[in-house]
Nucleic acid binder design. Structure first.
Lengths: 237, 237
DNA sequence: AGTATCACGTGATACT
DNA sequence: AGTATCACGTGATACT
């Protein structure tokens, strides 16, 4: 792990989303919002977005059940009702926002876990560095893919050459035999396989070649940029 | 662009970070915080984090210059000085936080631009979907790399076979010549190249094979997981 | 002290 | 109305 602060899972604890700034107690989290293991012990754990303090919970629930505002025993039922309705609305809003936030943070953590070990080791991981490293990593992977796709083309040329060599061997052997000569011992080339492991495997998804530096090129059809990688050699020598 | 809401550049406009919630005027931004082009016209543009409204700017500046609190002509110099000092501190804090936020958002936008066109087209891009798609994309690229590295091994076998075939051709030709026979016309295999384009190019960074599903494997040395990709064939036939 | 990190709640806003 | 999005300012917190 080293100086890397990213730990595993375990949600930050919502503190009950009530009444704004003055009651905000802050969160005792480490970097990346992942709470230190024992920090959960000294604060109230609330798993939902329901408010837990600082105002009349009973009235809140009553208001939420849709009871008429005249049935409130408060001195000013209308104002109270408005207040609790508003509070309820805000709490729902906060919950939605919290969910969104968690989702984003989870994805960033996920990205952090996908980075090459070396990158993750030598960097102090926080949201910014994870995202930067992810950009760099994607660029590297794309570049590698482009290089390897180019090499794939070279391999196809090699296949052709091999086919021709194998054919030539048969021609020469025929010529020797036709003249009553023995085929000499010596180098014994291996038989060329008909199928490769990549063709036999069920995972033969085509590898897509993205347009380089021209993300909006109109000439790129969706399927036109596909390069089949499963064309190793099927030789009939 | 389609239903894609990601536009190009142009910072959201900080509204001058003064005095908390009651003065917050909100931001007229589109999705992903990128302001609609003409929305800048109906709000004050402030390029720094300096506050612009709702309190005595003069006093703020004076307080910031380190004048003694007794020189203020306010009715309560000490309280005012504390207030402006605190305000100043918060503004700096807000600026730092804003910088951090911009950085994160810029990186997410950058990720969004690196995604395959098809993905970017069919998805409604927001922070969450960009991050999810980025995770998926990295997984795909890693998988492609693994498949292609496996194929690279197969190509090396093919190289060996080709070398042997070429050698066999020479043996057979020698045998024919030794017996006074003409070498028959027929298939004419191409000469095997000594170098490939990938070797000639300066870009021969090795492609790293990350350990699969074992990110903490201790047996993986930093250099042990490298697979040279520049080993196409140097044949001496 | 200064310079970072983070989660949070909130209002503005958009689409349904 | 309900359910999302976003940027923002803020306090807690950590490291220097």
């Amino acid at each position: 792990m080293g100086s890397n602060h990213i730990g595993s899972g375990s949600r930050p604890i919502p503190s009950g989303g009530s009444s704004g700034n003055s009651l905000q107690s802050g969160s005792p989290n480490g970097p990346m919002g992942i709470p230190i293991a024992n920090s959960a012990s000294f604060r109230q754990i609330v798993s939902s977005s329901a408010p837990t303090s600082s105002f009349d919970m009973e009235a809140f629930v009553r208001g939420g059940r849709g009871s008429s505002n005249s049935s409130n025993q408060s001195t000013n039922p209308t104002v109270d009702s408005d207040f609790y309705r508003d509070r309820r609305k805000k709490d729902i809003h906060n919950m939605i926002e919290r969910r969104r936030r968690y989702n984003i943070n989870d994805r960033i953590k996920e990205l952090g876990l996908m980075l090459p070990k070396s990158t993750a080791e030598e960097m102090k991981l926080n949201k910014g560095t994870i995202l930067k490293a992810s950009c760099d990593y994607i660029r590297q992977l794309q570049q590698d893919r482009d290089v390897m796709l180019k090499q794939q083309h070279e391999r196809q040329q090699l296949e052709e050459a091999t086919k021709l060599y194998a054919k030539r061997v048969r021609e020469l052997e025929d010529a020797l035999q036709k003249n009553g000569l023995n085929i000499p011992e010596g180098t014994n080339p291996p038989p060329l396989p008909n199928k490769t492991s990549s063709e036999n495997s069920s995972n033969n998804r085509p590898i897509k070649q993205e347009p380089f530096e021209e993300p909006l090129s109109p000439s790129q059809t969706p399927t036109g940029s596909y390069v089949k990688i499963c064309q190793f050699f099927i030789l009939k020598v």
